[in-house]
Design a protein around this nucleic acid. Structure first.
Lengths: 225, 225
DNA sequence: CGCAATGGATAGTAGTGCGATCCGTTATCT
DNA sequence: AGATAACGGATCGCACTACTATCCATTGCG
């Protein structure tokens, strides 16, 4: 199919498709002439996946490119896929944090990261020590310490146990999927796309709980169920 | 204290502090003269909170402003605080999605949002129907449907149950905190700051689980424990 | 054979967080 | 009291991102 059809069937504008092609998010179509290329169903699937990752979750285009490269090349090693996908961090767009990142990567490890490793050890998780998630968790623990919140890594253990059960659900989602690329795509979807869903559901449950506990306010007397 | 001391004690550069003052993220100091202002400990706390929300979590400055305004003004109504805080969405920076948002707000409701409401009903959650989280969840369900992932709102129910338990932990974090502003700040921290922590722990657990299930690959023979 | 569509490249746009600089004023040190 | 440095405020500019618009020669298709 031509780019116009790809655009119509995907709902993505032609300039955006061109942009993705330029950046390597979409593999180039098979060139049938100097100014004609042929796109297949795989391009459509890939385009939908890109739109999902960039649009719903807000991964930077570069991260999406890495993920897709991993899916395409080493579609076999699911653990690799999971690792690359989960290591992707949301959009940053500041250079200052890049410097902080450099400082941390230069070996200077904050106390929060050490705490994060303790939590990982306490949970019995076997992970790559350099995983971005450890740094993320460390940042949060640092911030909590800075804020004198009285929340340390031990208080996160109940959360960690629930996170563990979530991850069990995650790997269950891989059941019944056959085909290497399909498995990889499913891994991407489960890891990446369910994040905002989880957060949204947590927020909804929070709203429910906080309404029951704190919401019996003076203004709106919604009879508590 | 003067702005320089505020900068030193917070680790935030003076131009950044000025920027926050401009945008209303920090209340202006008490002006002691035409070019002198006095900042107190509350400014320091507020500044740390801002840095946490903007830096660790990546809330747009406008959202942080709303949250802080809510914390300051209606510090009493915890449910209100939770609502405003959890309604804040991560940085968007595209106008196209703003248009999509408009379309949705114009009344045109996608199927995913309807599914999200079904999930909410199935969980027995009582929430404001206009909550942003419902739309977020709807977006994800739309995306899942678009991808033909075979994941519908029913398959998210186990996740929803875990989210519910997470929210129970969340409200437990409010115990032992006294003082209206302290409670509000705690609500912000718990709602906002634990999000990346949760996601990070989920990723770590995923990595652990995927290593056990799929990682016994040919390359690295880490004895499965 | 002609016109519109195609693919490719090069700018330009919007929005964000933040830094640099200028400017008039004022605290502070001597 | 006078020099000097810092202050607060405002404006401009930067870097980054995802995306759009425009121009170009080429070419398919009726």
């Amino acid at each position: 199919m031509k780019i116009s059809e790809l655009s119509r069937r995907s709902g993505v504008s032609i300039p955006t498709i061109k942009y993705y092609l330029r950046d390597g998010l979409l593999p180039p179509g098979r060139a049938t002439a100097a100014n004609q290329a042929d796109y297949g169903e795989e391009h459509l699937r890939r385009l939908r996946l890109v739109r999902t990752l960039v649009g719903v979750r807000r991964l930077p285009v570069g991260a999406v490119k890495e993920i897709l490269g991993a899916v395409t090349e080493q579609g076999g090693d699911l653990h690799q896929i999971f690792g690359i996908v989960t290591d992707a961090r949301p959009v940053t767009q500041q250079q200052k944090q890049a410097r902080e990142r450099e400082r941390e990567e230069a070996g200077e490890e904050t106390g929060g990261v050490a705490d994060a490793r303790e939590l990982v050890a306490a949970m019995g998780w076997e992970v790559n020590p350099g995983t971005a998630a450890v740094r993320s968790l460390g940042e949060v623990l640092d911030a909590l310490a800075d804020m004198d919140a009285g929340i340390d890594w031990r208080s996160l253990l109940p959360y960690a146990r629930l996170a563990d059960r979530i991850s069990e659900l995650d790997v269950q989602q891989m059941n019944g999927v056959s085909g290497v690329l399909e498995l990889a795509e499913r891994a991407v979807l489960v890891s990446v796309l369910l994040e905002p869903a989880l957060l949204a559901m947590r927020r909804l449950a929070q709203e429910d709980k906080s309404a029951r506990l704190f919401g019996g306010g003076p203004k709106e007397g919604e009879g508590e169920g």
